[in-house]
Amino acid sequence: MTGLAQLLPLLNEALWHGFAVFLRVAAITSMLPAFGEQTVPARIKLVLALAFTLIVAPAVVPYQMPIDFGDVTLFIFTEVLAGLALGIGIRLFILALQTAGTIAAHSTSLSQVFGGAGVDPMPAMGYILIIGGLALAVMTGLHVKAAELVILSYDFMPMGRFTAGSVLSEWGVAQVARAFTLAFTLAAPFIILSVLYNVALGAINKAMPQLMVAFVGAPVITAGGLFLLLVSSPLILSVWVAAMDTFLANPFGPIP
């Protein structure tokens, strides 16, 4: 009984520490690419959050449990907000890939092919890029990098402390700007192809007004878009993974 009495305080501290880490980890896991997708069952997400908690908790300095109920509520809200902020920052890279696929599809007249065949309606090019990007991210150790990110986040966003609203809003705006910049960069080959196609089509129409250039050019732009997707996908995905790795390594660092 004496040994049990001595063990109970340690057990309470361990449970509280695990719960405190779980709050932030669960919020990040719900937004994490591949692990937090809408198609992943909630039970699997819960198991993944618990697994990440077991990995991260030993590397985090324990936080003293608040006594007052209001302090506990504020602590829970603070940790969930910190996790959601980081999770949304990672999720923006999926948005960038989705936006790049949409831009590429619209540029090559392929935006209506299987456009609404999933949870988030998007062109087929977007699905191809997202599935390829998720597979590549997991293959390159996304789970390990995510655990390192959570551990690193406690240096910038300590437990139980609110980040200043001005700092968080400025950081969020910068991440959104980077996501759209990255999306346009990834879709740049398709935009260039679209411009060249329309210029050539206009020149042909000017030289031969009787020719139905739209019927002649439609198969060309479709075939060219598919061929360009085949050729440029490895480079697009490698650039995307490198950008996400940079964010995971230092989410609050300067944007390259």
Rank of each mutant, 00 (worst) to 15 (best):
M31A: 06
P189H: 04
A223H: 05
F252G: 02
P62W: 09
M159Y: 01
I76V: 15
M65V: 09
Y63H: 11
V61I: 12
Q38V: 12
E37L: 12
T102L: 10
G87F: 08
E37T: 14
L152V: 00
N250S: 14
P62A: 04
M125S: 12
G253P: 10
S107Q: 15
F184T: 14
A242G: 15
P254R: 09
F22G: 15
S30G: 14
V119S: 02
Q175P: 04
F22R: 14
V56P: 01
G133P: 01
L193E: 07
A96R: 06
L46G: 08
A146E: 09
D120M: 11
V113A: 09
L15G: 11
F156D: 02
I131P: 02
A96Q: 04
A147I: 11
T140E: 07
L182T: 06
T2V: 11
L92E: 01
G118R: 09
G253D: 09
F35N: 04
F252D: 07
I151V: 15
A203E: 06
V144I: 13
L230A: 15
P62I: 01
A49H: 10
Q175C: 07
V199T: 11
P189M: 05
K206A: 09
V119A: 04
T140H: 04
F162S: 06
A137K: 03
V61G: 02
T99H: 00
L229I: 00
L182A: 02
T246D: 08
L136R: 15
L10D: 14
F22E: 13
T29R: 01
G115F: 13
A249G: 12
